[in-house]
């Protein structure tokens, strides 16, 4: 069974294909991963199997269940997935907030998630508002030990930072990109300023310019219902979608000379550099050497 994608960097990743909450036991589900049709099934023992849909021999693909999602690989994936310890904290509410198809590359989707500059314009009245448009200086590093991009000390004024916010507040942000297509955002919890809510985006590349964006939240919030949390996040993502789909080119240019960054784009620059270092070819426009 031939797989059309030939980039080992992306083939050997774990890719999210579905949140667990929407699955029916023993039902075969179909989706697309890296242009290949795949099928997967969850059984009543919470075990998952996956295979290439058109493969008569039904050779099994590597799978795992982590952080409320099913992950599949088309190559030889690493033994472990990145760490996300907050997911297991007992007082948190983990909500998969929905999966959305977007006509853009995975890299553009992750990068938009890292960008604070668009908050006052795209999420006006919720995650930002004029005249509070400045992206203050923040720190970015590529952690070699954890193999992830980390942006810290980010601050932004938000009129309605979360579904349970009553008033505007200065919100502290930390961004982690521990996987080429997955990002986690840690932000001040409106109910406990010593702890951080986590918002996740796990992107499933269906093609180079077509993705399924899986979104979710891991909140310290025992008041809002899962449905309210989903509605909030869907509004935000619905606002991002046209911005993403109007990016040109749709694939992410890794050469720093192609798009001129500003200071606020530090995290995006680090992300692109990190992808370059990994030698990623799929869904990106690689740097000229």
């Amino acid at each position: 069974m031939e797989i059309s994608c030939k980039d080992p960097v992306i083939l050997n990743q774990w890719h999210p294909v579905s949140s667990l909450d929407v699955l029916t036991m023993d039902t075969v589900e179909n989706t697309i991963l890296l242009e290949s049709k795949i099928s997967f099934q969850l059984n009543s023992k919470e075990e998952v199997t996956a295979w290439l849909s058109l493969d008569d021999e039904k050779t099994l693909l590597p799978t795992r269940i982590s952080y409320g999602f099913i992950w599949v690989s088309l190559g030889n994936p690493p033994k472990d997935l990145f760490l996300f310890p907050e997911f297991s904290e007992s007082d948190r509410q983990n909500v998969a907030t929905g999966v959305f198809g977007v006509n853009v590359s995975a890299g553009r989707t992750v990068e938009n998630f890292l960008d604070m500059g668009h908050f006052p314009y795209v999420h006006s009245g919720i995650l930002g508002e004029e005249p509070h448009t400045e992206v203050k200086e923040y720190d970015v590093e590529i952690s070699e030990e954890r193999d992830e991009v980390l942006a810290t000390s980010c601050k932004f004024y938000q009129p309605q930072a979360a579904v349970n916010s009553n008033e505007g507040m200065d919100v502290d942000y930390i961004y982690r990109v521990p996987h080429i297509n997955c990002a986690l955002l840690y932000k001040t919890s409106p109910v406990d300023d010593a702890r951080l809510d986590v918002i996740i985006i796990f992107v499933q590349p269906m093609g180079e310019e077509w993705v399924r964006a899986h979104t979710g939240m891991c909140l310290i919030d025992d008041e809002s219902t899962a449905e309210q949390i989903r509605q909030f996040q869907q509004t935000i993502f619905g606002q991002d979608k046209p911005i993403l789909e109007n990016q040109y080119p749709k694939q992410l240019p890794l050469d720093s000379r192609i798009e001129t960054p500003i200071r606020a784009d530090k995290s995006a620059i680090a992300y692109r550099r990190w992808l370059s270092q990994k030698g990623l070819q799929y869904g990106v426009i690689p740097s000229a050497i």
Partner: peptide
């Protein structure tokens, strides 16, 4: 009155 079309 919110009716959750997706994913509900």
């Amino acid at each position: 009155k919110k009716v959750e079309f997706h994913p509900g």
